[in-house]
Design a protein around this nucleic acid. Sequence first.
DNA 1: GCTTTCCTCTCAAAC
DNA 2: GCTGTGAGGGGGTAC
Lengths: 266, 266
Amino acid sequence: MNTARSPPKTPPGCRDNNGNSPFPLTPEQVKRTEMNQLKAKALFAERLKEKQGKGGNGTDSVTGKREREDRYIQPARKFMNYIEYDFSKIKDTKGGFIVDDDKPEGRKKWDEKLFSKPFIEPPLSLDPAKNAKCRECRSVELDFTYQRDFNCDVCSKCIKDLPEKYSLLTKTECRTDYLLTEPELKDVEILPHRLKPNPHASNWSNMMLYLRYQAEEFAIRKWGSLEKLDEIHTERETKKKTAKDKRFMTRLEGSSLIVIDETHCF
Amino acid sequence: MNTARSPPKTPPGCRDNNGNSPFPLTPEQVKRTEMNQLKAKALFAERLKEKQGKGGNGTDSVTGKREREDRYIQPARKFMNYIEYDFSKIKDTKGGFIVDDDKPEGRKKWDEKLFSKPFIEPPLSLDPAKNAKCRECRSVELDFTYQRDFNCDVCSKCIKDLPEKYSLLTKTECRTDYLLTEPELKDVEILPHRLKPNPHASNWSNMMLYLRYQAEEFAIRKWGSLEKLDEIHTERETKKKTAKDKRFMTRLEGSSLIVIDETHCF
DNA sequence: GCTTTCCTCTCAAAC
DNA sequence: GCTGTGAGGGGGTAC
Ligand SMILES: [Zn+2]
Ligand SMILES: [Zn+2]
C-alpha cells in the first residue's frame, strides 16, 4: 500500500550527523564500514563492466521488495517484561557474564517472574520544560516504550502517521533489506532492539524488532546511500540466482551422477 | 624427514571402535558428519566427472603438505597450570557460566596465581594391577600430562618413538590438514586439547594442541578414510586456486577499473 | 608452520 | 514475510 521506504532525509555519506542520531560509529565500526564500502564498490564496478548497462530498473524491484506492512507499530506494552529481560541479559553479556544458561525451563521461569511484576508508569514532570517532546510534532505525549527501547522521543500519532520512519523491522528484514550483519545487529550500542515472542511459536527464539529510521540511517552510513545499497542488493540477488541456476545445470548434465533429488546426488 | 602421517591403523569407516578410543560420536555429530560426507561425496563425483581422471598424484602433494615436525612432543610440564586453567574454563563454559571476563589483567593475574601453585606428582599405587599401562608397550611409567589432558595412557618413550600417533597438532593444523571444523575442535568431548602460550607472543591467544591419533581417528570417522580426506583436500585446494586465478584475471581485464594493487581496486 | 572474528550463504529446527 | 548455527573462505589482529 504505502511505500515504507522514504527518500533519504539525511544526505548520503554524512559522517558527522547531529540531533537525534543515537549511534556514533566507533573506530572499529567505521573501519569495518569503510572496508565493506570498498569491497562493495570494487564488486559493483566489476559487475557493471560485465553488464555494460543493460539492467536499468533494478532498483524498482528492490524497493518493491522492501515494502513493509506496518503491523508492528502498535506499542506492545504487554511485552515490556520481555524487554527488561533482554536488556539485563545484554548488559551481562557486555560485562563478560552470562548468567542464564541454555535450559528453556529456566528461561521460561524467569520470564514468568518478570511478567508478574507490576507495570509502573513513568512520572510526568510538572515542569513542562523538563519533559521531552516528540521529535516530529513537539507533542509531550510520547510513546514511552519507544523512548525506553529505542531512545527515541516520538508520540504515538507520529508513529502511526510516519511508518516509513517509525515502523519496526525484524532482524532478518534488517539483514536482507538493509544488508546489515550479525555483529552490527547484535551490538545494542549501534542499533537498539525490542524483543517480542516468536509469532510462529512462543517457545521459539524471540523476534527482534528494530526501528526503521535507525536501521536505515545506519545502512546509509554503512553503504553510502540508499541507492548504492540497492545496487549491492540487486547485485547479490542476480549473483545468487545465477549461482543457483549453474549449480542445478551442472548437476543435471553430469550423466554419471545418480540424482535422486536436488539435495541427494552421488 | 619422517612422514608424520602413518597408514591408517583402524579400518576406514568403522563405526563401533573399542579400546582406547576416547570419543563416541553423539547423534548430532553423527548427523553432521554424515551430511558432510554426503556433500563431499557429491562434490567429488562432480569434480571427477569434470576432470575425467587426469589428476592422478594429488594425494602425494597433500601428504607431503601434511608432514609435521615433532617439536611439541616433549611433555610441557612447566605449562601445566595453563592446562588446569583451560580445563576449569571449559567446564564452566559447558555449565553455562563464563566466570573470567575479557579484561587481560584479570586473566594474567589468575595465571600467575596458578603458576605459583606447587606441582604435585600423582601417587603411584603399590598394587601394580591398579596402575594403568602404556597402550603401546605396557610400561607403567606413563606420561602424566597425556593421561590428564588427552585421556591417553602412553609412556614418554612411545610418544617419542611414534610421532605419527602421539605428536601434537595446533588447532589450525587440525583445520587445514584434517578438515575439522570449529565446533568439532571446540567440543572437548570429541577432541581434548592442551593449551600452550602463543609462540608469537605470550599475551596473544593461547595455542591449542591436539593429539594426532585422536584427530586422525576422528577425521577418519568423519570423512570415511584418509584417502577420501585427501581427495576432498585436493579438491578444495584446486578450487581455491582456480577461484583466485579467475578473480585476478577478471580484475585485470576490466579496463575501467583503477587497480592499485590486488586488494585496492575501484 | 597462531588465533579470532568476520563475511556470505544455506539450511535446520524451533536458543 | 522467524532465528540460530554451521560451512567455507579470507584478512587483519595480537586473547
Ligand atoms: Zn508527534
Ligand atoms: Zn610405551
